[in-house]
Write a protein that binds this DNA or RNA. Structure first.
Length: 617
RNA sequence: CGGGGAGUGGCGCAGCCUGGUAGCGCACUUGACUGGGGGUCAAGAGGCCGCACGUUCAAAUCGUGUCUCCCCGACCA
């Protein structure tokens, strides 16, 4: 049943509608939050906790209805799992500690440790284990629309980062990789349709699958400056990835003579694959190390400027404290991450290289304790009470300038292998605006801010193994099913839809998720009984035709009503007034377009026609 | 968790420095006028001044503590 309509929601008279618009702007820092608050869609209870008022809740329900339709269409089955879960379940998967402080922990009256679920992999896996027995039960994709709880360190951005939110989460179970591919693709396509129908433009980007493994994941990003995520998009081939994941070609090391990086980078050549140097500079013999005075030069930028060298001729040491998430109480290890000065460390890649350690900046006291000096640190000449991870960029870069571990001094002509030895050499560099795309080898990566609206993830067997799930295969053997997981932030869709669809006077709801479809305005009804009678009749007529109407029957001036209609932002505004009534006309104004006057007798049919197409989005 | 800012009718703010009658705009109620882009006038209702302790004859105002909210950062499978 394609494009089944959500059941029609009841109409409403504004004299009865709970909640009022506000005339004055709020101090919200995003447009969507300001508009949602001002138009009376939501109300803030506490940091990261919002109430949906009647208007907002209708929109939210419509988003959920679209999500349900698309999940069902893709063959997923809806379930509903508990939000309150025994913490043992989380200990079994190892995530009780991994989730850290973000996990809401509660205790019941018997002192039993419980968790307010931030996601549901544990429960779904156990559910599947107990109810699926053979390959005949697979493939299976289950989903739910549930409240999730995350004790965010800092909720912000209105509905974007909250502590209690509604998420659609789906989980697929397949016998083999081919099956997972099919399930994953079905969800991917469903996501595209959901965002399109909700009027939220998204870009699928490659995402980091993290230390928990998995064979790839993609995020659906809504591109917006207010976003907290950074993504890189290739201006040539369209490759898009989270910065944490993005593959790029490193700019070659600048030659001391001052060969500009652009002249090197701009040369066409073999499109390099992966994060390898674009060009290998002619071998340069290692020179003797010498200490040089660089007072007050604790940044790479200042150092390069002082010495008149490019940043790529320096080595940057980033000092971090690494904690094993499975043993969070163990003392953290100190880590020196060394990278060429013109690049930045990608903490996700570094974390992955260290087996999923959680990283935090090393305190100044601990830096000094290791014998290093903040701003002048390097692994050179120090007693090895730390781990050293080197980025591949450093390995073929000779005669670099590095910290001397002495206030106000650096070392010239530092060479890896001779002066210091890394424990791990790997790619730990962060992709940046302007880097060359590694996919096509010619395009330039452009940096964009965005909000993660959804995430599709080939999970693998991490959870099915942790919970010892296996099913009988066709050949009689027991197999561990392969999982995929797929999440969508429902509240984020509401916020993003507003962010993407508004103008100076208010929201411009996509018809598919507008709280009502038609804003019926009666002008001067209190002084012209004919207007009141006709507007009432039209209200009933629209309702009977299955149109969701918000009827402004208040005794307010035209200006107030029009401004409120613009702010609330329904797709169509109908105006009944004595002026038009005597000509047998009604004014129809699509939100954001010019008004037209239609014969009173044709209005309902006209709107039914207009809305039928728009409803499915 | 570190840094900064703020808590005074529903919302936004002033008052605090220099202690003594709690004020303004929006919103709300009633009435009159007005009537196609937030109209005018008049009369009203509504406030443990975040909380606690202290100083004082007297605290929104001074002091200490605490809670909350906002912003920056850290954090965010």
């Amino acid at each position: 049943m394609h494009h089944a309509l959500p059941s029609r929601l009841a109409p409403m008279r504004m004299t009865r509608l709970f909640g009022h618009t506000r005339r004055e702007r709020t101090d919200a820092d995003t447009e969507n939050l300001d508009l949602l608050l001002r138009a009376g869609f939501i109300d803030q209870l506490a940091a990261g906790s919002y109430t949906y008022m009647p208007l907002g809740y209708r929109t939210k329900r419509k988003v959920e209805a679209i999500v349900r339709q698309e999940m069902d269409r893709a063959g997923a089955q809806e379930v509903f799992m508990p939000a309150i879960q025994p913490s043992e379940l989380w200990e079994q998967s190892g995530r009780y500690d991994v989730f850290g402080a973000t996990l809401f922990r509660v205790t019941d009256r018997r002192e039993r440790a419980l968790v307010l679920a931030p996601t549901h992999e544990e429960v779904i896996t156990r559910l599947f284990r107990d109810h699926a027995q053979s390959y005949r039960d697979l493939p299976a994709t289950l989903y739910q629309i549930q409240t999730k709880f995350r004790d965010e360190a800092r909720p912000r951005g209105g509905l974007i980062r909250v502590r209690e939110f509604t998420m659609k989460d789906a989980y697929s179970f397949d016998m083999d990789e081919a099956g997972l591919d099919a399930s994953y693709t079905a969800m991917f396509e469903a996501y595209r349709r959901i965002f399109a129908r909700c009027g939220v433009p998204t870009v699928p980007v490659e995402a980091d699958s993290g230390a928990i493994g998995g064979k790839g994941s993609q995020e659906f990003i809504f591109i917006a400056d207010i976003g907290e995520d950074t993504i890189l998009i290739c201006n040539q081939c369209g490759y898009a990835a989270n910065t944490e994941k993005a593959e790029f070609v490193r700019p070659a090391t600048d030659r001391p003579a001052g060969t500009s990086p652009s002249s090197v980078r701009g040369e066409p050549g073999e499109p390099p694959r992966g994060a390898q140097p674009a060009e290998t500079p002619a071998p340069e013999p290692p020179l003797p190390t010498e200490e040089i005075a660089t007072p007050g030069t604790s940044t790479i930028e200042a150092l390069a400027q002082l010495l008149g060298i490019p940043a790529s001729r320096t080595a940057k040491a980033v000092l971090l404290a690494a904690t094993n998430p499975h043993h969070p109480t163990d003392p953290p290890e100190a880590v020196f991450a060394v990278i060429r000065g013109d690049l930045d460390v990608n903490e996700i890649k570094l974390s992955n290289a260290l087996g999923g350690r959680e990283l935090a900046p090393l305190t100044e006291a601990r830096i000094r304790d290791l014998g290093a000096v903040p701003g002048y640190a390097s692994p050179i000449g120090l007693e090895r009470r730390f781990r050293v991870v080197a980025d591949t960029s450093i390995m073929d870069a000779p005669n670099l300038v590095a910290g001397a571990n002495r206030e106000g001094y650096h070392l010239r002509n530092v060479n890896v292998g001779r002066d210091w030895e890394p424990e791990i050499v790997t790619d730990i560099a962060l992709g940046r605006h302007g880097h060359t795309c590694a996919r096509c080898g010619t395009g330039t990566l452009e940096e964009r801010r965005g909000i993660e609206m959804g995430h599709v993830f080939r999970l693998g067997t991490i959870y099915t193994q942790a919970f010892e799930v296996n099913v009988l295969a066709e050949d009689g053997a027991r197999r561990t099913p392969i999982m995929g997981c797929y999440g969508i932030g429902v509240d984020r869709i509401v916020a993003a839809a507003v962010e993407a669809n508004h103008d100076d006077s208010g929201i411009r709801w996509p018809a598919a998720i507008a709280p009502y479809e038609v804003h019926l305005v009666a002008l001067g009804a209190s002084r012209d009984p004919a207007v009141a009678t006709d507007a009432d009749a039209l209200y009933e007529e629209l309702r009977a035709a299955g149109i969701e109407v918000l009827y402004d029957d208040r005794d307010e001036s035209a200006g107030v009503k029009f401004n409120d209609a613009d702010l609330i932002g329904l797709p169509f505004r109908l105006t009944v007034s004595s002026r038009n009534l005597k000509d047998g006309l009604v004014e129809v104004q699509p939100r954001g377009s010019d008004a037209a006057r239609l014969a009173r007798s044709e209005v309902t049919a006209h709107l039914v026609e207009q809305l039928t197409a728009a409803r499915t989005g």
